[in-house]
C-alpha cells in the first residue's frame, strides 16, 4: 500500500517539523512518497528526502504552484493519485485549503485533523473542539487525510529517498496571488516550539502584550494568544491558539490572562506542563493547569520574567 504525502512548502522552503510529523503518521499506512510542490520546490524535495521513512520524493515546480493556491495544487495531486491508497498532509492552513478539494475531486470523504491512526482505514479525530474524540472507519477506495501534527512526534533524519521530477497539471487559472503579510520574527515557530507563552483578554492592550513577549523571549518561547486577544487587536491572527487557530502541544505552555474557554483549551490542552496566571480564581483555565497562580498578571509576569534568570 502506498501513501502520497503533500509536504508543507512555503516559498520554496520545506516546513520540516510539520512534514516530518505527518511522515510519522503516514509510515503506519504504507510506503511514503512525498510530493514537494511550488514555484520552486527542488530544495524542499531534497530536504524531504532526508526524512527517515520517506521512500521517494516527487518534485513539481511550476509558477501555478507558487503561493500554495488550492486549485492548481489540488489538480496536481489528483493527476498523481493513481496507485496511492492514502493521500495525506499535515493539517496546516495550506493543506486544509487543498485537501478537501482533492477529496471531492476523487469522490472521497476527507478525514480532517486525524489525531490517531488505528489501522489503514480507521482513524481518530477530535470533534466539538476536542470535547470528544471520534473513531471513524473510511469506506472510500482512496483515503484523503490531514494529520493533526501536535499528536505525532517528528520523524528523524537519516533517510536517502530518490528524487524524481513530475510535471504540474494544467493550470485551471481560477485564482492568483496578490500579496502575503507575514510578520518576521526571530522567535520559534508556534506549532513546533518547545515553550509557548500566550496572552488573553486580561492583558488589556497591544502595548501590554509586550509583557507576554518579554517573558517569551526570556524562555526562548513562541508567543500565542487567545481568540479574545486577537479579536481585540492585541495580537496578530497567526498567534491564535484554539479550535480554529493553531493547535500546539509544547513541553511548557504558559497561559497569562486567559480565562480558558473550551475553544482555547482545544488548542493547547495536550501540552505537557500547563501554567496559568489569572487573577480570577474561578477561571476554567485552572482546571487544566498543572501549576496555577492566582495573581495580577501585571505584577506576576514581570516578577516571573526576572526570577527565571
Amino acid at each position: 500500500m502506498a501513501v502520497l504525502l503533500l509536504a508543507e512548502v512555503t516559498n520554496g522552503e520545506l516546513g520540516l517539523d510539520a512534514t516530518a510529523k505527518a511522515v510519522t503518521a503516514a509510515k503506519q499506512l504504507g510506503d511514503v512518497t512525498v510530493l514537494a510542490a511550488g514555484a520552486s520546490a527542488a530544495a524542499a524535495g531534497d530536504a524531504a528526502a532526508k526524512i527517515d521513512g520517506v521512500s521517494k520524493v516527487l518534485v513539481a515546480e511550476d509558477a501555478s504552484l507558487g503561493h500554495r493556491l488550492a486549485e492548481a495544487t489540488a489538480a496536481l495531486i489528483v493527476s498523481l493519485a493513481d496507485g496511492y491508497e492514502h493521500i495525506v498532509a499535515p493539517a496546516t492552513t495550506d493543506a486544509k485549503n487543498v485537501m478537501p478539494r482533492v477529496a471531492a475531486l476523487l469522490d472521497s470523504m476527507i478525514i480532517s485533523d486525524a489525531s490517531g491512526v488505528v489501522d489503514g482505514s480507521t482513524f481518530e479525530r477530535p470533534i466539538y473542539a476536542g470535547n470528544a474524540v471520534q473513531t471513524v472507519k473510511s469506506n472510500d477506495a482512496k483515503k484523503v487525510i490531514t494529520i493533526r501534527t501536535s499528536t505525532f512526534d517528528a520523524a528523524g533524519e537519516g533517510g536517502s529517498a530518490s528524487v524524481e521530477t513530475v510535471s504540474a497539471a494544467a493550470d485551471p487559472g481560477l485564482s492568483s496571488w496578490v500579496e502575503d503579510k507575514v510578520a518576521e520574527s526571530d522567535r520559534p515557530e508556534l506549532t513546533s516550539a518547545g515553550v509557548v507563552v500566550s496572552g488573553g483578554r486580561g492583558v488589556g492592550s497591544e502595548d501590554d502584550f509586550k509583557l507576554i513577549e518579554t517573558l517569551a523571549d526570556k524562555l526562548g518561547a513562541a508567543v500565542g494568544a487567545s481568540r479574545a486577544a486577537v479579536d481585540s487587536g492585541y495580537a496578530p491572527n497567526d498567534w491564535q491558539v484554539g479550535q480554529t487557530g493553531k493547535v500546539v502541544a509544547p513541553d511548557l505552555y504558559v497561559a497569562v490572562g486567559i480565562s480558558g474557554a473550551i475553544q482555547h483549551l482545544a488548542g493547547m490542552k495536550d501540552s505537557k506542563i500547563i501554567v496559568a496566571i489569572n487573577k480570577d480564581e474561578e477561571a476554567p483555565i485552572f482546571q487544566v493547569a498543572d501549576f496555577g497562580l492566582v495573581a495580577d498578571l501585571f505584577q506576576a509576569v514581570p516578577e516571573l520574567t526576572e526570577k527565571l534568570g
Partner: peptide, 25 residues
C-alpha cells in the same frame, strides 16, 4: 462514507496545584 466506530471523552488531565507565589511557581 465514514462509519463512526465510537465517540469517547478525551483523556482527562490530572488535577494540578495552585501555587502561592511567583517564587513557588
Amino acid at each position: 462514507r465514514l462509519e463512526i466506530v465510537k465517540t469517547e471523552e478525551p483523556a482527562a488531565r490530572a488535577a494540578g496545584i495552585i501555587v502561592g507565589s511567583v517564587d513557588e511557581l
